[in-house]
């Protein structure tokens, strides 16, 4: 692959600034976690702006906790959790974690592959704020999170059928309900 034509030049700015830091970080990640890291896409070699670390599904929480607290990484800010639907491919879904460091101001991205029907361990123990982001992934993609305290729908009505952001859900698949969503008293105990 010809890097010069395929990688847009604006990715390069970050690579110049954080390239060496990312290289040492990726090396120490590989040394620490070994085969639990499937692969690392490095900017300049792959089509991405920051390094993408593909982690085994069972190890993701430990890797997140390590990245959050280890002095060589300090990715203390969970910028986002989301998912993508790669429909014809197997496994079907990819859960994406965006991390940001408040000390070095660089970013890194973690990815986990999930098959339809499988579940990912929850990151709520590491960042309590991951709660709603994971609920949203359940709502939109139907990926379950193991050990999540309150895995309900969040954007859609609780009576909604299907998961709208899946590629096979139609853009105009309306569903209408005659009554409002009632307060859930079980949540207040």
């Amino acid at each position: 692959m010809d890097v010069r034509t395929n990688v847009p030049n604006l990715y390069g700015e970050h690579l110049q600034k954080f390239g060496d830091l990312w290289k040492t970080q990726v090396e120490s990640l590989r040394a620490r976690w070994g085969s639990k890291i499937e692969r690392v896409d490095f900017p300049g070699e792959a089509l991405t702006d920051v390094p993408v670390v593909w982690v085994l599904r069972s190890e993701i929480v430990e890797v997140l906790r390590f990245l959050k607290s280890d002095p060589g990484f300090e990715y203390n800010f969970l910028a986002d959790i989301t998912a993508t639907d790669e429909m014809p491919e197997r496994p079907r879904f990819v859960v994406v974690y965006q991390l940001f460091s408040h000390t070095r101001f660089n970013r890194i991205r973690l990815k986990v592959k999930v098959e339809d029907g499988e579940s990912v361990p929850t990151a709520v123990d590491v960042w309590p704020g991951a709660n709603w982001a994971e609920r949203e992934i359940w709502d939109m993609f139907g990926i379950k999170f193991d050990g999540h305290p309150d895995l309900r729908r969040i954007l859609m009505d609780e009576r909604w059928e299907g998961h709208p952001l899946r590629k096979d859900y139609p853009l105009r698949g309306y569903q209408i309900f005659p009554t409002p969503q009632v307060p859930n008293e079980d949540l207040l105990k």
Binding site: P8, L47, D49, A79, Q98, R107
Partner: peptide
């Protein structure tokens, strides 16, 4: 072109 990027900016509410 194919690729992925997470672009952020300090909007008035935050990131």
């Amino acid at each position: 072109p194919a690729g992925e990027a997470y672009t952020t900016f300090e909007a008035s509410n935050g990131e």
